[in-house]
Amino acid sequence: MSLLEVEDLRVTFPTEAGPVEAVRGISFRLGRERLGVVGESGSGKTITGRAVLGLVRPPARLAARRLAFDGRDLLAMGEGARRALRGRRMAMVMQDPKFSLNPVMRVGRQLTEGLRLRDRMSAREARRRAIAALEAVRIRDPERVMEAWPHELSGGMGQRVMIAMMLIPGPDLLIADEPTSALDVTVQAEVLRILDDLVRERGMGLIFISHDLKLVSRFCDRVIVMYRGRIVEEIAARELENARHPYTRGLLGCLPRIGGPRGPLPVLARDAAWEG
């Protein structure tokens, strides 16, 4: 059975100039695998992730023929049940750790709070678990990081702390929204490797949302390419070089390469037909 089933998902935002459909009827299934969701800004990829987590709030409207997690219908579930699910079985890593960590709480307390409140764990046990999680994301000096304030962490370190925090309850589904875009390139690779190992070891389902097609294809099993709220292509990551949709091909071709030709870069000729 699929971990996540999404069928005909639509998200609409009301604006002064009339409703705008940001996600326009997309369907996909996710097993215990790594799925990349790729698109440019405005493609609806981030909203798709938030919709799965139940973070689409009024006045935005969500509709779907089916939205199920581990066989349970998410649309029929109350807000409390959704929240419980988000805490334990679904987690999200966001783009910029600066905005995801509470700036006035030490890292250690943020890591242990959930364990102590939700799982009624003793302070000692919670601390042990938190340190283990920090070690799992290859933080060399977890004791020191536990005592640190968020602003004392570098970008890469902050993002590792975020990943550790998300992984502590042992979720079945992890949604990573551009988890490395705010990081320096030399740090990116390290954070991705950590994420990759964790997903592999724990057999989680992963939705990796990114604008970077090449990065996603190296990291995922399957890739969904979104354009203006629709899926234009779904392809095995290995087969990406053989992508057929002109948008996917255009995305692959428009990046400069070191030592590449000096002439103008190929640009996307957008076709109204892609919007379907």
């Binding site: 390139v185 970077d212 990065l215 990046l255």
Partner: peptide, 23 residues
Amino acid sequence: LAAGDFRAPYTRRLFEASLEAGG
């Protein structure tokens, strides 16, 4: 740069990261 003719290890790290990531 195109020929990989550089000495500093830091340049090499940037170079390799650039080949891996798309942009």
